Simulated assay, not measured.
Amino acid sequence: MIRVLLFVVTNLSVISLLCIIAFFTGIQTNNIIYLIISGFLFGFGGAFISLLLSKKIALFSIGSNVIKNPTNESEMWLLKVLKKQSKQLNIKTPDLTIYSSNSINAFATGSKKDSSLIALSTGLLNKMNKNEIKAVIAHEMTHIANGDMITMTLIQGVLNTFVIFLSRGIAYLFSNLDSNNNSSQSIFQKTGAVYLILTIFLEIMFGTIASFITMWFSRRREFYADAGSAKIVGVENMISALQKMQYNPYSLEIPKTLTTLCINNYEQNSFLSLFMSHPPLHVRIQALYKKTYM
């Protein structure tokens, strides 16, 4: 709750500053109000709706269901591991699902710590030993305990708000430089080619910059999740799990909407490392050896 409050206060403070600047640059009050409302609705609104529906979206995307009643020894053992680690981290035991995939992967999602989901691939369960599986579960548990999902949503919401606010505000100002445009026209009425083209261009530009920030946070949280796992099950087990992923090429068998959530999401042939949601596996392994984030 404190985390949400701090993000909202920060967002309101910066938006207020931008409003003051916008007022002195000639944007009318009704247009500023529109920018604020649209920024919050489309920025924060979209991010939080996505978070609230994250479990349902994840289950639908991978075509799986929550395991409520274990049907075999493997499922019983996994649920025991979840319960034990949940007690260690003082959080409610997450729901568990297993999805069919040859890739070694797992992810955690959910709108809050006490309503989360951990998904494990069949490839992971078939190719890892029990200690390595415990390490992967502990990694995902740490994401949940750290509140990474809500933090990621808040960051994305704040950035989305600024992308919308700045792109439309700047596009409005520049489009009014054209003598043929009516400077008293409201943003509601703005449909000219100059305004629309500028808005699209600026949203792409600011959106790209925003992606750098969200992906930077995403990479940082992976290091802390690895460290959290190492504290729960031991550094050697977490390193062993990452090495197992390293020697089994990542297979793109999971929907793109879920790839940022997965423990194994580093592609060697990526266009730019700044856009990657996960650090390279060898870098994560070195961080564990050096105990950088412990």
Rank of each mutant, 00 (worst) to 15 (best):
I133Q: 06
S240H: 00
I15A: 13
G228D: 02
N72M: 02
K127M: 08
V4N: 10
T153R: 12
V235T: 07
P279E: 00
W216K: 09
L258C: 04
N146L: 14
S229H: 07
L120V: 02
M152W: 09
T122A: 07
H143A: 04
I239C: 04
F223C: 01
N90T: 04
F217G: 01
M149Q: 15
F40N: 10
N11Y: 09
S167T: 03
L17G: 15
D95Q: 10
T10E: 04
D178Y: 10
A241V: 00
I36M: 13
L52Y: 11
G234N: 00
Q185F: 06
L198G: 01
R220S: 06
M128R: 01
L78S: 05
R168Q: 15
L79T: 03
G192Q: 13
F42Y: 13
A171H: 07
F42E: 03
N181M: 11
K56G: 08
D114N: 15
R219L: 04
K84Q: 12
S121T: 04
S240M: 02
V66G: 07
T161F: 15
S183T: 11
A58S: 14
I133K: 03
I20R: 13
A145H: 14
G43N: 13
C262T: 09
G26E: 08
N265M: 03
N131A: 03
I32C: 07
F212C: 00
Q156N: 14
F188N: 15
N65V: 08
L196P: 01
T208Y: 12
T208V: 02
S61V: 02
F223M: 04
E75T: 04
S103R: 06
A138R: 06
Q268F: 03
E267Y: 10
K56P: 03
T71M: 09
F223S: 00
T25I: 08
N265Y: 12
L173S: 05
Q88Y: 07
I104S: 03
L196Y: 00
T199L: 03
L5I: 14
N129A: 07
L258A: 12
T292Y: 01
V283S: 10
Q268N: 08
A210Y: 02
V4W: 15
Q286L: 15
K134Y: 01
S101P: 11
N265S: 06
Y195G: 04
D114Q: 11
S184R: 07
R220Q: 04
M1K: 15
C19I: 07
K134C: 09
A227K: 09
A47C: 06
F44H: 06
L288A: 05
F48S: 07
N65L: 01
S116T: 07
F165L: 07
I62D: 06
N105M: 13
T260Y: 13
T142R: 13
L173E: 00
F7S: 08
